[in-house]
C-alpha cells in the first residue's frame, strides 16, 4: 500500500483531516458522475449532428463555413489552458501559496476567454455568410453542438472568476481547494469534448 493509493490525486489537505478527505472523495466522485451524465448529453448532441450532416437543404455545408485556421487557434488555446490548469492543480496540491495558484488560474481564465472570443468571432462570420441555425437541419445541429460546448466553457469561466473571489475572501481553505479540483476535472473534461468536436465536426467535415 503506497502513499498514492490512499489519497485522491490532486488533493493535499494535510494529513490531520481524514474526515475532510472522506468528504473530498464523495464530492469528487459525485462530480465525476455528473460529468459522465453530461458526457451522455454531449453524445446525444453529437449523434444528432452526425445524422443531420447532409441535411443542408441547399444551404451552406461544412466546407463553406468552417475556418480551419481559427479552429486550430481555438484548439491550441484550449490545450494550453488545460496545461495551465494542470499547473494550477499542482500549486493547489503542493504549494500552500495563493499567489502562484491565483496566477495560474488567471492565465487559464485568459486562455479560456480567448477561446470564447475566437469561437464567437467564427459564429459571427458564419452568420454573415447566411449560415444561421434556422437555415437548415445541418446548421441547427452545428449550432446545438459547438455552442453547447462554448456554453460549458463560459460556465467554467464564471466558476473560475467566483473561485478567484473566494480565494480573495477566504484564502486557500478546504472548500476552495475542493472547488479548484472539481473545476480542474471539468476543465479537462471540456477539453476532451473539444477533441471530439475538433475531430468529428471540423477535421472530418473538411476531410
Amino acid at each position: 500500500m503506497s502513499y498514492e493509493t490512499f489519497r485522491y490525486p490532486g488533493l493535499n489537505l494535510g494529513r490531520a483531516h481524514p474526515e475532510a478527505h472522506d468528504a473530498a472523495e464523495t464530492l469528487m466522485f459525485g462530480f465525476w458522475v455528473f460529468m459522465m451524465s453530461d458526457a451522455i448529453l454531449f453524445g446525444m448532441v453529437f449523434g444528432t449532428y452526425v445524422i443531420q450532416l447532409d441535411a443542408t437543404a441547399g444551404g451552406p455545408g461544412p466546407r463553406d463555413i468552417y475556418d480551419i485556421k481559427s479552429v486550430l487557434i481555438q484548439t491550441m488555446l484550449l490545450l494550453a489552458s488545460s496545461f495551465t490548469f494542470g499547473m494550477a492543480s499542482l500549486s493547489n496540491k503542493h504549494k500552500g501559496s495563493p499567489p502562484r495558484l491565483l496566477a495560474w488560474l488567471v492565465v487559464t481564465l485568459l486562455l479560456g476567454v480567448g477561446f470564447l472570443v475566437f469561437e464567437v468571432r467564427d459564429f459571427l462570420s458564419m452568420f454573415d455568410m447566411g449560415a444561421v441555425p434556422s437555415r437548415s437541419g445541418f446548421l441547427s445541429a452545428f449550432f446545438d453542438l459547438v455552442p453547447l460546448h462554448g456554453l460549458h466553457v463560459t460556465c467554467a469561466c464564471i466558476w473560475l472568476i467566483c473561485l478567484v473571489g473566494q480565494i480573495a475572501r477566504y484564502g486557500l481553505d478546504t472548500d476552495v481547494k475542493l472547488s479548484v479540483m472539481r473545476l480542474a476535472l471539468f476543465w479537462h473534461f471540456l477539453d476532451i469534448i473539444w477533441i471530439a468536436i475538433f475531430s468529428v465536426v471540423y477535421l472530418a467535415g473538411l476531410a
Partner: peptide, 15 residues
C-alpha cells in the same frame, strides 16, 4: 426557428 424535427429544411422528426 431551428430545424431539428420540422418538416421543412432538413428537419428529421424521427430523431
Amino acid at each position: 426557428g431551428f430545424h431539428y424535427f420540422t418538416n421543412a429544411l432538413g428537419g428529421n422528426m424521427m430523431n
